[in-house]
Design a protein around this nucleic acid. Structure first.
Lengths: 352, 352
DNA sequence: GTGAAAGCGCTAACAA
DNA sequence: TTGTTAGCGCTTTCAC
């Protein structure tokens, strides 16, 4: 033992320490080195001699020391965190993207903060503001439609940002996604190529979900282009809810409001699944009475009877690619923004 | 302007500030108050006079100040974060729980750190260690089977912990879940009550997923109890993968290895869905040729044809209840640990 | 109701 | 290779 004033058994009367947790200084005095050497042992072991390294490691293990990353963050101005802002946690497409993101970031020591906007741009702005307080080293955010305040916050933050999913000509920084517009166009071309002439598009087109709005706009324009004279049939659930029940309702409304429909295109496989199973229950033959096309290529699509024609999207890759872009920028290796179009593919199956 | 030495336009030559971000001191000097008053404005506005409050708020807005929570964390020893440790992000049951957790915690200003163990206890321990460095105010963790090291870390952390999903007689701290053992027993009693005599249990029973292992043990014991003399039929996929493809494989193996099976119980609705749809494709009548029972009551269960008999689990409620327990403990209002059994319910439908 | 002083636990910069 | 010094930006404590 030493008579150092930092001895843990000689706490200054003026201390404010509320924790009883071990600090760098405790480890240092046990190992008989300076706190700096302990810090180096953890962060840059190659700068420390073998003997010292062993001694410090032993001291860390003995004390059960866990570095306080808030202090590290404050001193180094790096948090080793990434903030992920998604519309909702319980939608598999975003969960897949988060999974991709986490797989790339976790091995590099980055931890993920997650926040859900529930499709509300106002809530998104609040969330961004709250996350900024944590000084994340990177930001992953779904969507390209933000409030002016949110856009400003992100632009001025000086933090690498990846916007994901949607495509836009004017990203804030990096962009990883695909074109919803082109995807819907591709589906429509597929359907027309198959001989269908009376398409209806069904989904939830609330303004909060700009991806859905993009898809609807694309449908409108491309029907005009590919089927001149054909009326635009869109059925809107009027909610943000994406579930199979709503798919059944959309089917019912389509049958009632647009009985001439020969192919029913859904904005999500979730809707399509509900509708396709409802058809089976009601004796509507798919695709002979009515063809159905989904969007997203969820796992169930290739198991349904009949199998569901749909569009495969690069969900997980959006996350992993975004993670790699962030890593490049956070390490300082790369300085410029990138736009990555991951594309999509129409998957022809039996339902259309 | 003042001639205060803290003037932002008079940076000390010795400064180490890497950020150009606004600090409490900047706001204070603009509002002509002490930093302390700005802090109070944010954290305890009722202690500040109206006039001062207005002036400080104006200064905050003018400067675009965002408090640095790492500094706050360090000084106050509270991080206003909760760490959530789940087996995998891309499984809807855990996503639902996270959603419940977030819904309760976010309004109170708590942010969520998320980490995925991929069903590996070793990885879980690493993750806990990494998260401890962030000094979360609470920990949510799925499962009750941890490595000795992980258990020790959690127990000694002094941080409120909620273990979720499984049931155990010896929780680390709080516990929110249901009994997998009882749930499987209930399903089996239901099946036997319906007249089935040759049950087979299919799923993935890798040791990493203790919930699945519990279910299998329950199946074994309860078959012996309810159907004495009947052999125990279990089909194990041999992987941690939970997808419909595996459900199809499990069905095939059951038909090949145990053709006498009259009711096939799956450890997850995902498997059951794959199997049930495969039956439709192969002309196996459900439930007449073979009855099928799932586990989890996923959304698709009530839409399938035939609808799937299964067990409903309180996924989202597990999260929200855990959130409320953590909130109680983090606020200091409650000191004791609680064990909450949220139960389950067998949902009789057409497949069995 | 407000301010001054001290320090949370760590790392950057520099010195030896 | 190792140590010393000076903060990072905030909150606690205590004085007024």
């Amino acid at each position: 033992m030493t008579d150092s004033p930092a001895r843990p058994d000689t706490p200054a009367a003026t201390t404010r320490r509320a924790t009883n947790s071990v600090t760098l200084t405790d480890v240092a005095s046990l190992a008989n080195v300076s706190p700096q050497t302990v810090s180096r042992t953890i962060r840059n072991p190659q700068l420390v001699s073998r003997a010292t390294l062993e001694r410090v490691k032993w001291a860390i293990a003995t004390t059960g020391y866990v570095p306080n990353l808030a202090a590290s963050n404050l001193a180094s101005n790096r948090s080793r965190t990434v903030a992920a802002i998604i519309p909702t946690i319980s939608a598999s497409v975003f969960a897949d993207a988060l999974h991709g993101l986490d797989q790339v970031l976790a091995p590099q020591g980055y931890q993920l903060f997650i926040g859900a906007t529930d499709y509300s741009p106002e809530h998104e702005e609040e969330l961004i503001r709250a996350f900024m307080g944590r000084r994340p080293d990177g930001i992953f955010i779904v969507g390209t439609n933000h409030t002016p305040g949110a856009t400003l916050l992100l632009k001025n933050s000086g933090i690498p940002v990846v916007e994901a999913w949607n495509w836009t000509e004017t990203p804030i920084d990096n962009l990883v996604g695909f074109s919803n517009w082109n995807a819907i166009n591709a589906v429509l071309e597929y359907a027309v190529g198959k001989g269908y002439r009376h398409p209806t598009f069904a989904g939830s087109f609330q303004s909060g979900d700009s991806r859905a709005v993009d898809r609807q706009a694309s449908f409108n324009q491309n029907v005009r282009r590919l089927l001149p004279g054909e009326p635009i049939r869109v059925v809107d659930s009027g909610t943000n809810v994406i579930d199979m029940e709503t798919g059944v309702e959309l089917l019912d409304r389509t049958l009632a409001e647009h009985p001439e429909t020969d192919v029913l295109m859904f904005a999500s496989d979730v809707f399509a699944t509900g509708a396709l199973l409802a058809c089976a229950r009601r004796g509507i033959a798919v695709p002979d009475d009515l063809a159905i096309i989904g969007f997203g290529d969820f796992e169930v699509a290739r198991h349904l009877v009949p199998t569901l024609t749909t569009v495969a999207l690069p969900n997980e890759e959006i996350g992993s690619r975004a993670g790699r872009l962030l890593l490049d920028r956070m390490s300082g290796a790369v300085s410029g923004a990138e736009q990555v179009d991951l594309g999509f593919s129409v998957i022809p199956r039996d339902s259309a």
